[in-house]
Simulated scan of single mutants.
Amino acid sequence: MDDDAVRDTERGGAGAEGLDAAVLGGFLAVLDRLGARERVAYLLHDVFGLSPGETARVMGGSPDGAARCARRARERLRGGGPGRDGGDPGARRALVEAFLAAARARDAVALAALLAPDAVAYSERGPVHGAPAVAAAAAGLAGPGVLLRPALVEGAVGAVAHVDGRPVAAVSFGFRRDRIVGLEITTGRDGLRALGPVFPEG
């Protein structure tokens, strides 16, 4: 390798190191927006992929509390939470209706077409990444005897799954343009009660 090539390689390496440092600095600055418990919940649940139960064992408290803490952290980092970036509510309701219809049909291909490629689903089992995996998880929401109803979940467009008239899971959606980019899946009586879903009339 000649001297010019060596110098180019060294400059490229130095540039990459500078970029890595800048990205790390930005990530740490973002984490500084969070409270201590939110930061721990976000790192354990979202970054390292621990379930809410495992996160709760580290943090103390209940799995529902750990999941809510991680959810609040995501909302603060995103600037207000899923679905609150000023998009057209009517278009989002139509997108959710199409998503629910595909979920009822257990059609993972149709579900994936409504998702951003980098979509993420968060549940008590930890995060699931990528449109195909999220679509497969969503298809599982509408098993036999499950009724999916549109609802407002913590003020965001979402849905609630019922079995024998009893709510068993709630889903809120995050959006990017004309695709769903995030799902928050909450189960358990305490978790659902804390969300306080609101159902449209009719």
Rank of each mutant, 00 (worst) to 15 (best):
R57E: 08
A102C: 05
G80K: 11
I180W: 00
L50P: 06
L152W: 13
R176A: 14
G158V: 14
F99E: 12
L50Q: 03
M59H: 13
I185A: 10
A70F: 08
V181I: 08
A98G: 01
A70V: 09
S51G: 12
P82G: 13
A131Q: 03
P52D: 15
F99L: 10
R57G: 00
G49M: 10
A142Y: 03
V171C: 05
L114Q: 05
A66M: 04
R76S: 07
D64F: 12
V181M: 01
R92G: 14
M59E: 09
E75T: 13
T55L: 12
P52W: 12
L148C: 12
A135Y: 01
E75C: 09
V134E: 06
L147Y: 02
V146R: 07
F175S: 07
D164V: 00
C69R: 10
P82I: 13
V168T: 02
A66Q: 07
R104T: 12
G145D: 00
E184D: 08
A112P: 05
T186A: 11
V168P: 00
G80T: 13
A151I: 11
D118Q: 02
R125P: 10
A56H: 12
A98W: 02
L50M: 15
V171R: 08
R84H: 15
R179K: 06
A161Y: 03
G158E: 04
P167T: 07
S51C: 11
H129N: 14
H129M: 14
T187P: 09
H45W: 05
G143Q: 08
A98E: 04
G80H: 08
V109K: 03
R74H: 11
G83T: 02
E184H: 07
L183M: 09
P144W: 15
A116C: 00
D85V: 14
G65V: 08
I185C: 02
A139M: 00
G81L: 05
R72F: 14
D118V: 06
H129P: 08
A56R: 09
H162N: 07
T187D: 13
P127V: 09
G145M: 06
A105N: 13
A67N: 14
G65P: 09
R125K: 09
A116M: 09
L50D: 01
A113Y: 01
D178E: 01
L111Y: 02
A110Q: 00
V168H: 11
R176I: 13
L114T: 06
P167W: 01
T55P: 01
G86K: 12
A91G: 04
L148Q: 15
F99C: 06
D164Y: 04
V181D: 07
T187A: 02
G79R: 01
